[in-house]
Structures are given as C-alpha cells and as structure tokens.
Computed example of a mutant assay.
Amino acid sequence: MAADEKNTPEHDAREIPIEGAEEKECGGAECASAAPEAPEEAVQAEDAAAEDEVSEEAEDIAVEAEAVVADAERVAAAEAEAAAMKDRYLRLQAEWDNYRKRTAEEAADMKIRAAEKLMEDVLPVLDDFERAIAHAEQNGEEGLLDGVKAISSKITQVFAKHGLQVIDPAGEAFDALEHQAVATVPDESIPDETVAQVYQKGYRLGKKVLRPAMVTISSGGPKREAEEE
C-alpha cells in the first residue's frame, strides 16, 4: 500500500520548489516577450534618422533641380533676346543701306535738275553769243563791243538768279576770307590795307566763296578805324 502511494499522480505532481528555478527555466516566447525592447527602438530611431537624411537629400536635389531649371530658362530667355536683337540689327542695317542709297539717288537727281535749270537759263546767252559773232562776221566789228557787253550783263543776271554773286571789292577794306592779295601798292591817301585794284573778280554762292578776288592792297596810309572794320 505504501508502494502504490509513491507511484500515484499526486505524488508525481508534487514538486519541491527551488528558489530561482522559474527564472532559469524561463524560455521561448514568454522570455522573448519579457526581454527589454531597447534594441528595436534603436533600430526604429536609426530608420527614422535615415529617412530624415534621405528626405533632406531629396530636398537638396529638388532645390538644385529648380536652380538648374531656372538657369536654363534664363539662358533660353537670353538667347531669345539676343536673337531678337540680332534680327533688329539686321533690319536696321538693311533700312540704313536703303536710306543711304535712296539719299544718294535723290542728291544725284537734285544735282541733275539744278544743272538742267541752269543750262536752260544759259542757253539764250549762248544764242546771243552766236548772233553777235555772226553779225561781226557779216558787218565787221562795228557794234561788237556793245553786243558783248550786253551778253555779259545778261549772263551775270542769269548766274545771280541762281545765287551766284560777284566779288568786286575795289576801294573796300581788305578781307582775307574773300580776297587774295597778290601785291601791295604804297598809297598814303587812303587807309592802310584798302583794295587798290582788282586783277580778277571773285564769286560767292550763298555764303560759300567759290573763288576769292585777286587784288592789290594799299600800304603806308592811316590805320583804318575800328568802326569801319
């Protein structure tokens, strides 16, 4: 009866508690759940840091990409502006060439028209010369001088009509802008540097002197007053 009691389940179920045995025998999922969670949090922190770093790099790349796009747009705008300016320059150059050619043609036409008008006015004078020569050949030289004088007066009027003025400064003060002194003549009766004689008349067209008059001037006389100068 005592042996049977030893082999009963109740006897097997009873165990002698050993201090610290539960901690040693702990294992499997329960031990895993009881372990500290510090390593997993560190991994999560590392992942978060990596994500932040990737995000910052992505933002930097985006900023650089925007800068590259902006530079490309500025370059494209500058190229377009340069092309427009080049086209404008070529157009202006063509317009200037056309204007220069047109102005040259107009100036040539004006010169021809002016010459035509002058020749039309001079033709009657040439006719008078031919008549005077024919008259002298038929009737001798009688009256030839009067005819030449009349023709000279007539042609002077024609030239004056076109703006030509005669420079005949006899007795006037010498003017280096319109007169050319070829000699000096001592004369105390008239003011110094007075035109004594005109060897060749000069001509002026408007304000421009075409040819100065060739003259002799006096010397030795009194100085000309400033008011007369």
Rank of each mutant, 00 (worst) to 15 (best):
Q180P: 02
G206R: 07
D187G: 06
G202H: 06
E188R: 13
V209K: 02
A176L: 00
K208I: 05
R204V: 01
T184Q: 13
V182W: 01
Y203W: 11
R204T: 02
K208E: 15
A213K: 05
E178Y: 07
P212I: 02
T194C: 00
K201L: 07
G202R: 00
V182F: 08
H179D: 09
A181P: 04
R204N: 10
I190C: 08
G206N: 06
A181T: 05
D175V: 00
A183H: 12
V209A: 03
A181N: 06
P191C: 11
G206M: 00
V185H: 09
I190P: 02
H179W: 05
M214N: 13
G202S: 08
K208V: 14
K207S: 14
R211K: 15
Q180H: 10
H179V: 07
Q197H: 15
R211E: 09
A176D: 10
P191F: 03
T184C: 05
T194M: 09
D187T: 01
Q197D: 10
V195Q: 03
M214R: 15
Q197L: 10
A176W: 02
E193Y: 10
T184R: 12
I190F: 03
V182H: 02
L177Y: 08
G206P: 04
V195H: 05
Y203T: 13
R204L: 04
V185R: 02
L177F: 06
P212V: 04
G206L: 05
P191Q: 11
